[in-house]
């Protein structure tokens, strides 16, 4: 019956259930006292003037103007970020301190790594190519040809001076 009593106080009790409530109230002094108390509280609470003081408007519009002047929209979502996603500005002093600490730690870290031997890439080979046929056909050529890879380079040696009377 307590629920019906509260619904009645709130104006939510259907009409067809009100007769049963009134019948119960007629026979139940405790519920009558409860109803009396609740209604008295309601009467008393409405006696208090709760007008908004004019100073509130002035203070609010002043704050609003300051807010607009700053043009800063406060990101409330940042307050709700989890700790691991929190972002905070770091001062120059803190940044320098962290850098120095990391540097010092790096100095004292033991290094077990063997020095990596230097590796040289062979970019080309020299190959001696003898050209006996050429040498036989051209007695003036006495030096070999040099061939370089990967590109092919042929160094031609100079030939002997032509005999007097020979045309070039």
């Amino acid at each position: 019956m307590e629920e019906a009593l509260n619904l009645y106080v709130d104006g939510e009790l259907p009409l067809d259930q009100q007769a049963a409530l009134f019948g119960h109230l007629a026979a139940c002094p405790a519920c009558r006292r409860t109803l009396d108390s609740v209604l008295s509280f309601r009467r008393w609470s409405r006696q208090e003037p709760l007008g908004v003081p004019p100073a509130l408007d002035d203070a609010f519009f002043k704050r609003l103007a300051e807010h607009k002047a700053r043009h800063t929209r406060i990101d409330r979502a940042a307050d709700r970020r989890p700790l691991w996603q929190a972002q905070a500005p770091v001062t120059l002093r803190a940044g320098l301190t962290i850098a120095i600490v990391v540097f010092l730690l790096g100095l004292f870290v033991p290094s077990n790594l063997q020095p990596v031997p230097a590796r040289f890439a062979v970019i080309g080979e020299e190959e001696l190519v003898e050209l006996p046929a050429v040498a036989a056909s051209e007695p003036g050529r006495v030096e070999p040809l040099y061939v370089f890879y990967p590109g092919l380079t042929i160094e031609a040696s100079k030939t002997e001076e032509p005999a007097p009377g020979e045309s070039l």
Partner: peptide, 11 residues
């Protein structure tokens, strides 16, 4: 109240 209406304005 001021804070409430500022939040309303912001959000």
């Amino acid at each position: 109240v001021q804070e409430t209406f500022l939040r309303v304005y912001e959000n």
